[in-house]
Amino acid sequence: MPSFDHGGIDIAYLDDGEGEPIVLVHGFASNKNVNWVYPSWLSELKRAGRRVVALDNRGHGESAKLYDPADYQLAKMADDVAALMDHLSIPRADLMGYSMGARISANLALRMPQRVRSVVLGGLGMGLLSNEGRPGENVAQALLAPSLDDVTDPVGRTFRAFADQTRSDHAALAACMRGSRGLMSREDAAAIAVPVLIAVGTDDDVAGSAHELSGIIPGSEVLDIPRRDHMRAVGDRVYKEGVVRFLQSRP
């Protein structure tokens, strides 16, 4: 798998297909394969005539593992995405992130709108603006526990089990959880000026309200993914078809 150096940090990525580019940014404890390749997003978007670029976020997958929470500030992770676009000579692209990847994508859309044609915020609603009730230190502690059997917090167990399944570096993920929880202000969310689709499962108790966030981001659209929770929405057919429609309708 190809990689590039960004400020001394090795970032792995994939680049496949032809057509207008879309850059995919995966969620916490996932990676480009688990989030996008295995659920058939790569093949779906290629069939829709898109060039698909996806990275392993720092601390994840085949990218460099870092252990200081300060290295996982959202702006730094968004800069990795912009640097990948520079590396591939992509001046501007559609962007889709899921969960933490949506936080990263929203940060990039706000700070560098000239690089973003449109953005899909998957698995993220009002969680963009508030950490209340969202995964946090409980997940970091679960990741650092000796084993899954030592974790009693239900949310912590879910993420620890997922990290075990993806064979992730637990210490790097704990640092990422502690460093990437920066919030966007309501004023900044209202200043996002690119087309936005907010896609959240109707049974998702992690993302926060998609419709409430849509009321803050001007002109944004909501895609409800019926009967899907945070984990099961990722590969859903309604999600894929809605995203393709959104991309095809973009000016």
Rank of each mutant, 00 (worst) to 15 (best):
F28S: 05
L223G: 13
G123P: 07
V25A: 06
A29W: 07
S180V: 05
M184T: 01
P135I: 09
E62F: 10
E187M: 08
L197C: 04
A83E: 11
Y72I: 05
G101C: 05
D149I: 01
H230A: 09
V23D: 14
S99G: 09
R160F: 03
A191R: 15
A106E: 00
N31L: 06
G122D: 06
H170R: 12
A193R: 06
V151Q: 03
P39C: 01
P251G: 09
R157K: 11
P91S: 11
T202W: 14
A70Q: 14
L129V: 04
Y98A: 04
M177F: 07
Y239W: 10
M184I: 08
M184N: 08
S214P: 05
L45F: 14
N138G: 15
A210E: 12
S43Q: 04
A70D: 14
V37S: 12
A64L: 02
Y67V: 08
Y98C: 11
R134M: 06
A172N: 08
L183A: 05
L42K: 09
N138E: 09
V196S: 07
S63H: 10
D86F: 05
P135L: 03
A78Q: 06
D149T: 01
H211R: 13
A109H: 04
T202M: 00
N138I: 09
I9N: 11
G19K: 12
M96H: 10
V52D: 13
I104Q: 00
I225S: 08
G133A: 05
L45T: 06
P91L: 03
S40W: 10
G101Y: 05
S105W: 06
S180P: 13
G8Q: 10
D229N: 15
M1S: 13
V200P: 09
V151G: 07
A140Y: 03
R115L: 14
A193Q: 15
G27H: 02
L108Q: 01
R232G: 12
K76H: 12
G101H: 00
L45E: 08
A193K: 13
M77Q: 15
G17V: 10
S3V: 13
E137F: 14
N33K: 13
L247E: 03
G201K: 05
D203C: 07
P113I: 10
L223T: 01
F159I: 10
V81L: 01
I198A: 01
G97I: 02
A199M: 07
L42V: 15
R58M: 04
R134P: 03
L14M: 12
G133M: 06
P21G: 02
A193L: 04
I90R: 08
L110P: 03
I9M: 02
A75M: 09
D153P: 02
D94S: 13
K65S: 08
L74M: 10
D71I: 02
A82P: 04
G136A: 07
K32Q: 07
A83F: 14
S30M: 13
L183G: 00
R115Y: 15
G122N: 13
L121H: 01
S105G: 14
R160C: 10
K32I: 07
A191H: 11
R160E: 12
V119R: 12
L173A: 07
D15L: 09
R117D: 14
S214M: 12
G19R: 04
H87K: 10
Q141P: 00
Y67W: 14
L14D: 13
N138V: 12
L88S: 15
K32T: 07
H230F: 02
V25M: 04
A75F: 11
V25T: 07
